[in-house]
Nucleic acid binder design. Structure first.
Lengths: 144, 144
DNA sequence: TGAACACCCTGTAGCCGCTACAGGGTCAAG
DNA sequence: CTTGACCCTGTAGCGGCTACAGGGTGTTCA
């Protein structure tokens, strides 16, 4: 299986596949006589695994940690749980700040309907007020 | 006001301030005889504005668009609304995918309590199943 | 006087996870 | 024998910083 076929099969760009190899996530494949990479089913499986983890927004470093378990199946799986827990923690923290962000932007947006000059624009005025540290609709309490 | 004082006053790293200058967000300040940057109150205000917008997760390019309005206060503010609307759109889209992500990770996490070997770990098994494209707890419907 | 230290300067390289070249080689079809 | 699709390596770019290296400046204290 050449790199293009692997890419086709997994939906991954060939440049990305080479990048994963360079980064040590995907083991170096054998080469054909002409120097082309020759992949087997194990590469396909591993690449699919990587992509699924990426879809869960894990870092390549964390994926590396998970991949290591395939090489030592007798190891305690505590570290696997830890990777997932940490990821979940990050996602939840990010979710929290995104929700706050949406609130702030929604409030900000409500300060202007189009048709003013920039000088009169409530949005800009709010942003400037916020920059001054005054209480503003979009940052009502202390800016943490 | 020297760069360190400006940084202190705004809570912005001096390297970041210089970076904003290089990027054209912060106008070049005057220089003291010794070559040190000399900032005035307008720089302080502008930098605070930038940081507040960054706290709203706007890109530097979008902040640039907003800053341009200070130089032409008579312009129609339609573009300001557009920047905020686009940002709100991005935040909402991201929120949606983060919520899905949290669900997937939570479900994944429920597949293993610690104390197994890696081989038996439900999480790893689920991830491999997912990589195979089989229906899995964390990717139940079609992987889009 | 001079040594230590905090601050400032420029320029460059690194982080992440790709993406996009440039400049070449390989191979099958027309 | 030329076109075109594929492959190779190596390098540079994205955004938004962050972290040096290698130097200059200015104050304080012995």
């Amino acid at each position: 299986m050449r790199i293009g076929e692997l890419g086709e099969a997994t939906g991954v760009d060939v440049e990305t596949i080479r990048y994963y190899e360079r980064s040590g996530l995907l083991p170096e494949p054998q080469r054909q006589a002409n120097g082309y990479r020759a992949y087997g089913p194990l590469h396909l499986e591993r690449l699919s695994f990587i992509r699924h983890c990426r879809a869960l927004d894990m870092s390549l470093a964390d994926i590396q940690r998970l991949l290591a378990f395939f090489d030592r199946p007798q190891a305690d799986c505590g570290d696997i749980n830890r990777v997932i827990d940490e990821q979940l923690e990050r996602v939840r923290a990010r979710l929290k700040s995104m929700r706050a962000l949406e609130k702030q932007l929604t409030s900000l947006r409500s300060h202007c309907e189009a048709g003013h000059t920039a000088k009169e624009c409530g949005i800009l005025q709010e942003l400037v007020a916020a920059a001054h540290g005054e209480a503003c609709a979009c940052h009502p309490a202390a800016a943490q």
